[in-house]
Design a protein around this nucleic acid. Sequence first.
DNA 1: AAAAAATGGTTTCGCTAAAGGATATTGCAA
DNA 2: TTGCAATATCCTTTAGCGAAACCATTTTTT
Lengths: 337, 337
Amino acid sequence: MVSLKDIAKKCGVSIATVSKALNDHHDISDATKERLVRAAREMGYFPNSQARALKTNRTYNIGVMFSEEEGKGLSQEFFARIISYFKDYCDNLGYDLTFVSSGFGKQKMSLYEHCKYRNVDGILLTSGDFTSPDVFEVINGDIPVVTIDYIFESATTVMSSNEMGVEKLVDYVIKNGHTKIAYIQGLYTSVTKRRLQGFFKGCQKHGVEINPDWIYKADYHNLEKAYIVTKQIMEKDEKPTCIFMPDDYSALGGMRALTDMGYKIPEDVSVVGFDGISYSQLMNPRLTTYAQDTKTIGRLAAEKLINMIEQPETSFTEEIVVEGELYEGETVKDLTK
Amino acid sequence: MVSLKDIAKKCGVSIATVSKALNDHHDISDATKERLVRAAREMGYFPNSQARALKTNRTYNIGVMFSEEEGKGLSQEFFARIISYFKDYCDNLGYDLTFVSSGFGKQKMSLYEHCKYRNVDGILLTSGDFTSPDVFEVINGDIPVVTIDYIFESATTVMSSNEMGVEKLVDYVIKNGHTKIAYIQGLYTSVTKRRLQGFFKGCQKHGVEINPDWIYKADYHNLEKAYIVTKQIMEKDEKPTCIFMPDDYSALGGMRALTDMGYKIPEDVSVVGFDGISYSQLMNPRLTTYAQDTKTIGRLAAEKLINMIEQPETSFTEEIVVEGELYEGETVKDLTK
DNA sequence: AAAAAATGGTTTCGCTAAAGGATATTGCAA
DNA sequence: TTGCAATATCCTTTAGCGAAACCATTTTTT
């Protein structure tokens, strides 16, 4: 591997001069700069990121955490997309992405220890168990953190307009004549809370009564759970005409339950999801859902995190809300006709 | 950040001694070792991976490349799963995963330059354009490489038993009485070729005639393309009773085309996919397909790559074939009844 | 002659490999 | 048993890895 030293020797200048030339310092003549830059290129020089990091204490590396549970995390389209867009932005600015996790290596480092070991400049927390002590340690550490879809006092969060999203879905559903609406929520988090608020707000706005018996708890991205809960709902005496699912993936479970019970969608029961994963628009019938803008979420998360890294003094923790879009599918029946 | 120096000072020994104690060298007394290890823990010491890498020329970092095209790469369940399992294995051995890509940073490094810059110990090539010069450069470089689902002379490949997989599907379909079978293949690669061989072999085995007009070219993971090609197939005079899709995702496009044309699946036309993504078993009807064993593929890729890194002398390039499993869904009609 | 511009020398980041040195332990012939 | 070399044990010193910051020096410009 060719180093600054080699270039210096070949060109008869000092190492310091080469370093300056390649890093575009001002106190170097244009002539030498050009000569050295050319030599570097010809010799196939590439900086050694480790050496640079050691000296500057900046790795240009961002740690990304996502859930390691099977079927969650990366293989969940929503997060995969966000990370993908996040990466695009980082790529351009020369930041690399490294997966960080709990229990890393033979020493079984904690998440934070792992980050410290790799000296990441910043951390993105996507899916995963945000209530774990490991995450807590990271949040309280001194590395800039951005979270997706989970609110902490001391970290910046990027999330969809959950409240408004659900409200829009409620608007749509009520406009289609539904008044008996069941709501299945994901595990209780700040996000779930907001969505539920959106649900209440939407219903109240239109004077639709909310039946507390029809607010159910399930889980995110959990087919089986949605299946079971949906069955429970439809086994009661008074049945809703429309069911809100925690997310699109769960919706599949819920819909399967309905079909298994002999209900036709949307003729007998209407269904709405949340997320806008690609399959929701490919299935038959197409799912009515609120599509989260993963591209913007990913981009803003990267923008914000890099800003926190590069201009710590001008940045502050905040909640960034990204608007999504209502996808009008075929799973909500128009009862007004 | 506490360093070896700090520990050395506090404990009144040399830096080298601390290093040895923490790295379990033999020429250190048990007493001092224990004392130093404890001190390190108490002081919250963590090694600086950059400094270590600089000295040892080993980063314990593996570069992962996947396609950056929208909708491909990470957000494709098949690859996301493989990477996820690959990561699990690496985690345990203390290897980190860093995404590498072409056009990285302000200098727009090539893929190989990017890897060199980060000094990755090894590279995993998953999806992506394997025919690009950038990949070629990596393949010809001096960093160990493992590819998924693409064969190079000079790299180890881990892939499904494509030939046998398709053959099994053919067996199944023919057993169900089909003889007029159309086959849509993905873009031409060594993998496509093997699958096609499996198709031929399967048909010949059962004495089923292959109609060359029914071998179509499309693309992997491309709904629109599958949609169009499926329509073309069904617009001909002589129509097949069963269609092989390039992959499960494409199958969705193909099936949508069939439904749009008024065909019922499987009553009018049978369909089989390839991959075994989760949706394939959630959709209605469930897709008959060949499920690739992503867990084993990911694990073997990691095992092999790390072996190439740690024991370069005992490792050689090879093709590792992983068996999958036929999922009997509901998209193939039994014509024998 | 003073100021500005260009270049160089040296140290440092944190770590480890290799060689070197001090002390204790053993081997073994006298 | 004694004496002294051989050996083992444990630790220190030295020497970088590659890049960049800092300060010093030389050269050029005004």
